[in-house]
Design a protein around this nucleic acid. Structure first.
Lengths: 348, 348
DNA sequence: ATGAAAGCGCTAACAA
DNA sequence: TTGTTAGCGCTTTCAT
């Protein structure tokens, strides 16, 4: 009711009250305030009342930083992903799981930049977060070995890390590519091309390799059909020409990730996809509104995020357990673009 | 070279070395280690060498939490937005600006839930972040008054906050709606309907009001043309029927935000938009790949995010400066859907 | 240029 | 059940 004593006048930068102030105001010991704040049941009801009143009178808010320093745990896990603020269902799942475990999530964008990733991970380690989920980008992470040895729990998502042994969760890339290929093959296509991310990227390599394997398994030549590389308009355009031009053009296309799919659609122009069968790896926003609607191999992003948090919590609980490697199944979502039939064979 | 002393054996949870350990290892005072860690130039070169060596030998990493407790600043700002992990260019801009100012960003999803928003904001206050950017959702934020009085810098984004006086940055909603209406009017449309978010939402209210004002300014009746409400398939479907059915159907549509636009497109089905002129408020992912490509009123999300960080930094620097209110202009991006001409008047 | 010692605000042994 | 006291790991006066 009465305004807080202690020079809380208007305008000036008020000094926040601490537990000591609350204790004085309530006429109890510091320890009692701490107990009340932490809902310790062994405090007498009248003390609880007095302390609560003092807390309200002073507008006291405990300083989480001091608590963290003292207890050694931050209640926060970090997520170093390529992009926050872009559609990232795995990150959404991580946030949800973290919240369910009463953990704060500190998410940062590594932004496809190894040095940024380095800075973020080092900073997270200095903050002594309870654990870190990372979607690795850099080639080598040996510099993290001391941190891991010092007990910093870490989980890799989407890609494994090299140079350190950490738990990892990722999609079954090979199966997904197999599904896409098989689906198009079943719809009569015999010339199926692949356009995807650079093989320098782990998943780009896995997917391109799996596609080559599928071609070989169907007794086909790999020549001219597999086009990994950077996702730029020009590169994708050139790959498209290579795949769709020539004497024996592809009648169907597998795109290796969301960005490739979008780049291909942009390059082909509206409705060009109705002449060509397309199956994309990764879900695409508004895939149902395109024409034809896009058939995709969908990753179980919710499971990936959930599993990442699970692995991290298990690692926190038992730092010495053996390293786990979890592979999450993918699934095919048919919407139209993958069911375009192969054109009847005319001549050759 | 030699392994760190102090029981760093394999398997066990190693205790991290502190500055005290480094000081002992280097044979210097604690204070000197602190100086070296903080690049204080007044340290003798040979001391620097010794300390660096000890740091490397022990794999010492300073504990950011202790530093924060002691200095009082965290170097971290919070962002409580509706959704991270979804396309959110304003959040991306915030992250970029924060990084440019060497600030860590702690982003959390309030997820369209007032109690979640409350928990997140309270938690950020307890963590004594250097400042908070919030995309307010709850009706009233008076509970934050004590925090603001205690010196917690805060900036509202996209919507103002009620119950507290804080800086605010948002788009020029009224102009945007005016642009959309005017654009359609210029293309010959005389029956233009609006479907948007609920008027309980601040921007929903602003935009619906502006649309009514536009109708009135053009001497038209408001009846049956303005449809704010929750964004669900059924509600949007009903609003569409009301607007497009009847004796005098609308020939053009303004949608009030991204979700309304997408809901309308889903409801109308593919290519239905080629019979109806549509201008959406907010950019839509892959808007260029739809048919017809989508004409939208685009918010300058980059400017919004940048300004939010700017306002926050200024507030941190000068807690007593007057509250600022910044309105960011919007712009029209024509792609096709808004340029569908009005059908020739047949009878009536 | 370097060091000794006092805290930042909280929790956790240990006493009473 | 409540209080006393010693830190968590760092920065920072103040001496030297």
């Amino acid at each position: 009711m009465s305004p807080a004593p202690g020079g809380n006048g208007a305008g000036g930068r008020a000094k926040r009250p601490t537990m000591v102030d609350v204790a004085r105001e309530a006429g109890v010991a510091l320890r009692t305030v701490s107990r009340v704040v932490n809902d310790d049941p062994t405090v007498g009801p009248e003390y609880v009342t007095k302390v609560r009143a003092a807390i309200a009178a002073l507008n006291f808010r405990p300083d989480e930083r001091a608590r963290q320093l003292r207890t050694g745990i931050t209640g926060t896990i970090g997520a170093a992903v390529r992009r926050i603020a872009e559609l990232n269902p795995a990150l959404a799942a991580i946030e949800q799981s973290a919240r369910a475990s009463r953990l704060t999530l500190l998410a940062s964008s590594t932004d496809f930049d190894a040095s940024r990733e380095h800075d973020i991970l080092v900073s997270m380690c200095r903050q002594r977060l309870d654990g870190i989920i990372v979607e690795p980008f850099a080639e080598n992470h040996a510099y993290l070995q001391p941190e891991i040895e010092a007990g910093m729990p870490m989980v890799a998502m989407d890609r494994p890390m090299s140079g350190v042994a950490v738990d990892c969760v990722m999609s079954d890339n090979a199966s997904g590519i197999g599904m896409a290929f098989h689906h198009l093959h079943q719809h009569g296509h015999r010339r199926i091309a692949y356009i995807g991310d650079s093989e320098r990227v782990f998943s780009g390599h896995e997917r391109a390799s799996a596609f080559r394997a599928a071609l070989v398994a169907h007794g086909q030549s790999v020549t001219g059909l597999v086009h990994p590389g950077d996702i730029t308009g020009e590169r994708v355009g050139a790959s498209l020409e290579a795949a769709l031009g020539g004497p024996d053009p592809a009648t169907a296309l597998v795109t290796g990730n969301m960005d490739s799919t979008i780049a291909v659609l942009r390059r082909l122009g509206p409705q060009a996809a109705s002449r060509l069968a397309i199956v994309g790896f990764d879900e695409v926003p508004l895939a149902d509104l395109l024409q034809p609607a896009l058939t995709v191999v969908a990753q179980d992003t919710a499971a990936i995020g959930r599993t990442a948090v699970e692995l991290l919590r298990e690692r926190i609980a038992d730092p010495s357990r053996p390293v786990q490697n979890v592979v999450i199944p993918v699934s095919l979502t048919t919407r139209g673009s993958g069911e375009v039939p192969a054109p009847a064979v005319s001549a050759q």
